[in-house]
């Protein structure tokens, strides 16, 4: 457990560094090379599948603590937890994506993503790393794909890594709960 905590902190720091570097890069004038695009991502494991999220939407990664379920919230909301005195909601992508229920994993990490307006945590089993992916390697889903969560999908990298579109997750009104 203690090792895990150290882990979490480490990756948090790394993320911040990456974010800062990225901010510097963004501040530079746009050149051709930037436009060809390298996507910086945080890779994580969830239900025996590896996913990637653009780091610029990732605020921090924390260790999953006690989760308080919220009765009446949609099933993809696992519940809420407190991060330094603030409450955030936790999203279970397996339910949001209607992935077939198989296996039991630990969801030991919470990846907090934000676009400044909306903030929530995504439950993940483990963080597998930080890295860059050349944008041209991301193969968008074939137009015919009949996937319920296609709108949250940027594409695949060599079939094994699913690159998610954090922006579409954060801007989808369907993910915001506002009961009448």
């Amino acid at each position: 457990m203690t090792e895990g905590r150290a882990d979490g902190r480490l990756s948090e720091e790394t993320i911040r560094k990456v974010l800062e570097e990225r901010a510097k890069k963004i501040a530079e004038p746009v050149t051709g090379s930037v436009e060809t695009g390298i996507v910086e991502v945080l890779r994580f494991q969830l239900a025996y599948q590896e996913y990637a999220l653009e780091t610029r939407y990732v605020k921090e990664v924390i260790l999953t603590g006690e989760i308080t379920p919220v009765p009446g919230a949609p099933p993809f909301i696992s519940g809420i937890c407190a991060v330094r005195g603030r409450i955030i909601s936790l999203v279970d992508l397996r339910i949001l994506f209607s992935l077939p229920e198989k296996g039991l994993t630990d969801l030991n990490r919470v990846i907090v993503i934000t676009d400044g307006r909306l903030t929530f945590g995504i439950l993940a089993d483990t963080i597998t790393g930080l890295g860059t992916i050349p944008a041209f390697l991301i193969v968008p889903p074939t137009p015919g794909t009949d996937l319920s969560w296609k709108r949250y999908l940027k594409g695949y990298v060599s079939d094994s890594l699913v690159v998610l579109d954090a922006d579409s997750l954060l801007s989808d009104p369907a993910l915001v709960v506002e009961d009448a």
Partner: peptide
């Protein structure tokens, strides 16, 4: 406290409280 930016309004729930032992209660 509010339930965060994602849960703007959930029926029957006003908000959340962080209890003395650090647990979150609705």
């Amino acid at each position: 406290r509010s339930l965060g930016s994602q849960l703007r309004r959930v029926k029957r729930i006003t908000g959340a409280v962080i209890l003395g032992d650090g647990k979150v209660a609705l």
